[in-house]
């Protein structure tokens, strides 16, 4: 871990630091916080930040600290699961297509073109419409859009690696596919896949917020960053500090991930 950290550039370290702070906040709030994010207290509408309510309260007197914690946990865990799923599928299929080529490659490229025919958010919107308010549908939809990027990149790199002289030498010496994968293909994949993962996480956080924002994603009592922006926007002049919280949270999350991803924007 220290070695990995030392290999990062300054801006990547800043990004990692930002993310670590947000994760720490989300986890600590989950462990220590005792307030239910949906608990209303109408006598306490728009309480200004105080010792009891460090982030104030929303129009229903719900604790913003609890709601921000819950929303961050939701965004972070959804993006983590989406990135893991899509990376796993995309890398596996990409290696298969790049290595075997022939009909496997053609079939997978056909699927790729089906998915790419539509802009990602439109596809996510269609699948999200399948089960309104279901987190599972959002997870499937976002992963369905994200795996394409891994597939394209991994397929291209694998093709190159398989055709390279070192790999041909290894194969002629009788090494099996496991060895070749570990020794020749995988090292070339790690860097680009890590970059894609950071961008993918940022993309899934934005997609979740966007769906909440156009009222097609999760449903109101849930604390979700995009949804909170819509709910709190009408009160922008009464309680600007409350509206600023979800906006700032999405901004810091995406900024942190973009910085961590590095220069290949």
């Amino acid at each position: 871990m220290p070695r990995l950290f030392a290999s990062l550039s300054t801006s990547q370290r800043v990004g990692a630091g930002l993310l670590a702070l947000l994760v720490l906040f989300a986890v600590l709030e989950g462990l220590l916080g005792r307030t239910d994010p949906a608990l209303q207290n109408l006598a306490q509408r728009f309480a200004t930040p105080s010792l009891a309510e460090p982030l104030g309260t929303d129009p229903f007197g719900r604790s913003m600290l609890a709601r921000m914690g819950a929303a961050l946990r939701l965004s972070l865990s959804l993006s983590l699961v989406c990135v893991l799923t899509s990376a796993l599928i995309g890398v596996a299929l990409g290696i298969a297509a790049g290595w075997r080529q022939g009909w496997v490659d053609r079939a997978l490229s056909f699927v790729l073109n089906v998915v790419l025919a539509l802009p990602g958010l439109v596809l996510i919107l269609l699948v999200a419409g399948l089960a309104p308010g279901s987190l599972l549908a959002l997870y499937v939809a976002i992963s369905l859009v994200l795996w394409v990027e891994y597939f394209r990149v991994v397929r291209a790199i694998t093709r190159q690696a398989v055709a390279s002289q070192p790999m041909q030498a290894s194969r002629m010496l009788g090494f099996g596919w496991r060895y070749c994968l570990r020794r020749h293909v995988w090292p070339a994949l790690v860097g680009p896949v890590a970059t894609l993962a950071a961008f993918g996480a940022a993309g899934s956080i934005m997609a979740l917020a966007a769906l909440g924002f156009v009222a097609v994603g999760l449903r109101p009592p849930t604390a979700e960053l995009g949804l909170m922006m819509v709910e709190l926007f009408p009160y922008y002049s009464d309680a600007p500090w409350v509206l600023a919280q979800p906006v700032l949270a999405v901004f810091l999350l995406v900024l942190g991930l973009n910085l961590l991803a590095g220069k290949r924007a």
């Binding site: 802009p119 958010l121 439109v122 999200a128 419409g129 966007a210 924002f213 009222a215 097609v216």
Partner: peptide, 26 residues
């Protein structure tokens, strides 16, 4: 751009296809 159109039309109640799509899904 197309994704932006969907979100921006919904935000500004712009009577376009993206807004129509979000409404139709709803």
């Amino acid at each position: 751009v197309i994704e932006g159109v969907v979100m921006i039309e919904s935000l500004f109640s712009w009577p376009g296809v993206g807004h129509g799509l979000a409404h139709a899904v709803f």
